[in-house]
Each structure stands twice: as structure tokens, then as C-alpha cells.
Design a protein around this nucleic acid. Structure first.
Lengths: 211, 211
DNA sequence: TGTACATCAGTGAACGCGCGTTCACTGATGTAC
DNA sequence: TGTACATCAGTGAACGCGCGTTCACTGATGTAC
């Protein structure tokens, strides 16, 4: 056992494991973690209960794996989206604005709306999880703050800030608007609400740095 | 049985009922609805399980009562806050800005941070509830949109809008920022994050209507 | 190329506990006459 | 003012089902010699 070796088993089992995680993510976002039973997951995947426990030592291990995969995917999405936007634009402000536009369009293209943010779901049931999972949640969120804060710093080096605001707060606001937008989209049943909120944030950002 | 008669029993039972709801609200916001057991609620209140079922015909009735009480309280809070702000200011823009400042300060004064929004919690486990509860959630959210939209209309009658934005979206954005701010506050463990986000929204609003 | 062994990816049956719910009953308080 | 009855606010015991977890076992694939 190589220390730090955390990757899933290499062969066919990895596909089954991912199917379990797929079923779990959908279920957890719709019914909460405690409301999601192992029975329903194995029924969806088509294995037995012992098969589940081959992949995860207990339900807590599922919770952790689920969050890890979600964070990695979200990181990859942001990497991809904003690096593509940067290629099109060497000005940091325009690059960010283009990235936000692309994000909004990407969200608008989801036919049934955004399925939900696991970070948010976990925050609203965090007493169900151990320190490790909660720490993962915090670390990921702070990582995203830093990611956007760095962009804002690069913008602020070229453009004057037109209001007395903290750039960490402005960085946080993108996640705030995304998470809040997901909730309101679900609450009123309008899938277009979330992408439009992202565009409002984009408009505010333009105002903050331009005349 | 008077039709439409939905009020809690009038005497001592009402206090017990409220204690159950208090315990339930705290637990549901920390562990989700499925993760909250009737056993833990009755232990917190100090009654037997049959006592619980005297007040609620089943767990679903608890979910509904919980949400109804939450919505009524939130409505009352908004009524109180913004009518006080209006009294201090006859200009609709300044009245709204003062109300937002008061809201931010009220949130900043919560020693352990905002306990969480039941609407958001329910959205993230809505398959646990029946149509009725989901409809309640939608109706309340649309009511708040209309409430703030009306204010924005009154402001827009006096001040020019400085960007091409939909006022329903701007109204939604307050709830979006509040719900998202609650989540990020929880995720990073900074109670001051939420009130600061409200002030960012306030800043954006000022920008939208003023030079 | 064949054989021995190890690992992978599960199966099948059983477990006990906690969960939501039901039912018959009860003491205290309120109301009608 | 006293009595009969109704309602309020519960108690106590039992229920069955579903839940997460364990354990001994297994066939298929991979690796060493």
C-alpha cells in the first residue's frame, strides 16, 4: 500500500465505483445524505449490498469520495473555462468577463437546470459528516476564493476600483451568486434564473472596474 | 372542525408544539430532514413519542408546520425591517438602502452566525416532501420576489436605471445573495461573510440607480 | 506453455438496532345545565 | 354550587420494516516461475 495512494482500483471496478457515485450524487442532491439509502444505490447500479461495501468501507467513505470527486470536477471546470477565456483575451478584465459569459451560457444550456452544488448540500447537513469531510468543504471553498481573488488582483493592477470594497468579498460573491442562484432556480422552478444571476454579477464587476 | 381552521391548539399544548418546532428547526438545518429523528426531538422537549403524534399526525405534518412557521417569521421580519426603514426615509431608494444596512447589521449581530434558511434546506431535499410543501416553498419565494420588485419599481419611478437589467432579477438577487451568503459563511466558518455580502448587494443597487 | 498463487470484484445470508406509526388508555382542565 | 360530560395534552407498550454493517465464501483475471 503506497502511502497517499488514494486512487480508485484500476480495472473494471472503477466503472462500478463511478456508477455508485453517480447514483449517489443525484440522490443526495434530491433527498439529502441521510435520506439516501445504500439499497437504492445498489438497485440503480445493479449490484448487491456486499458489492457496495467492497468499494466503500462504510457510508461515510461514500460521503467523502463523493465530495472529493465533486471538488475535482468543479476545479477542472473552472480551469478549463477561464483558461479558454484567457486565450481569447489578454486583458484580465475582459478575460474574466468573457469567462463569466461562458459560464452563464454553459449553465443556460443545462436542459433541466443545474443539479445542485454538493458543497451547499453538505453545509446544510454538516452534522452528518466527520471533521475530515467538513475540512474538505472549507478547503475547497477557500481555494475557489483564492482562485478568483487572484484574477481580481490582476484586474485591479490595471483598472481603478470604483468602490470601497474588499476584493475577497467580490471573489466570494461569485460563489455566493452561484450557490444562491441554484437554490432560487430550484425554489421557483426557473432554470434560466441561475445564468441570469451570473450575468448580474458580471454587470456588477464591470461597474466596479470601469467608468 | 371549522374549515380552514389551521391554528395550533390554544392552551398549553401550543407551547409544547413550539418547543418541538424549535428543536426540529435546529436539527433539520444541521442534519437534514431525514437525518432528524422524532426520538431526538422528544428527548429535547421532554415528552413521549405519543406526545409528538398528538401534535403532528405524521412526520410530514411536522415538515409542513416547520416551513409555514419559518415563512411567516421571515415575512414578519421583512415587514418590520423595511417599514422601520421607510419611516426614517421617504425616498424609496434611500429607504431600501437603509433597510439593507439594517439587515446587514442585524445579521452581523448574530453571535454564531445565521442558523440557515429553511427554504434552501428544503430545496436540497425536496424529494422528501409532498407537492404541498414544495408549492409552499415556491409561493413564499415568489412572494418575496414581488415584495422587493415593488420596491424597485417605486425606485425606478424616480431614478434612472443605469444598466440593461431586469428588475425581477435584481429583486431575486437579494435572496440569492442572502442564501448563497449563508452557505459560504457556513463553508468557510466566517460569520461576517453574510452581512458583508448584503452590503455588496447594497453597493450594486446604489450603482444601478445613481451616478 | 503449464501450474500455483494472489488479487479483483464481487455474492448471499444474516445481524441487530432505530425508525416512524398505531392503539388503548388517562389525568387535568373547561363547559352546560 | 354541584354534577356530567367533552376536550386537551398527553402516557406506555408494542409493531414491523428498512437501515447500515459483517462475515464466510467465490469465480474471473493477472502474475511468478
Amino acid at each position: 500500500m503506497v502511502s497517499g495512494m488514494n486512487a480508485p482500483a484500476s480495472r473494471k471496478g472503477a466503472a462500478t465505483r463511478d456508477q455508485i457515485l453517480d447514483a449517489a450524487e443525484t440522490a443526495v442532491l434530491a433527498k439529502g445524505f441521510a435520506g439516501t439509502s445504500i439499497d437504492e444505490l445498489i438497485a440503480a447500479v445493479g449490484i448487491t449490498k456486499s458489492g457496495f461495501f467492497y468499494h466503500f468501507k462504510d457510508k461515510g467513505a461514500l460521503a467523502k469520495a463523493l465530495l472529493e470527486r465533486y471538488i475535482a470536477r468543479e476545479d477542472a471546470l473552472f480551469d478549463d473555462l477561464f483558461s479558454r477565456a484567457d486565450e481569447l483575451n489578454e486583458d484580465p478584465l475582459h478575460g474574466f468577463l468573457v469567462g463569466l459569459k461562458m459560464l452563464s451560457e454553459l449553465l443556460a444550456d443545462l436542459p433541466t437546470g443545474h443539479p445542485g452544488c454538493l458543497i451547499a448540500a453538505y453545509c446544510y447537513q454538516d452534522r452528518l459528516f466527520d471533521r475530515e469531510v467538513r475540512a474538505l468543504n472549507t478547503r475547497a471553498t477557500l481555494g475557489w476564493r483564492r482562485r478568483f481573488r487572484d484574477r481580481l488582483d490582476r484586474i485591479a493592477a490595471r483598472y481603478p476600483l470604483r468602490a470601497d470594497v474588499d476584493l475577497d468579498d467580490v471573489a466570494d460573491m461569485l460563489l455566493v451568486v452561484a450557490d444562491g442562484g441554484i437554490i432560487l432556480s430550484k425554489a421557483v422552478g426557473e432554470t434560466s434564473l441561475l445564468p441570469r444571476q451570473i450575468l448580474l454579477y458580471r454587470d456588477y464587476l464591470r461597474h466596479l472596474f470601469q467608468a
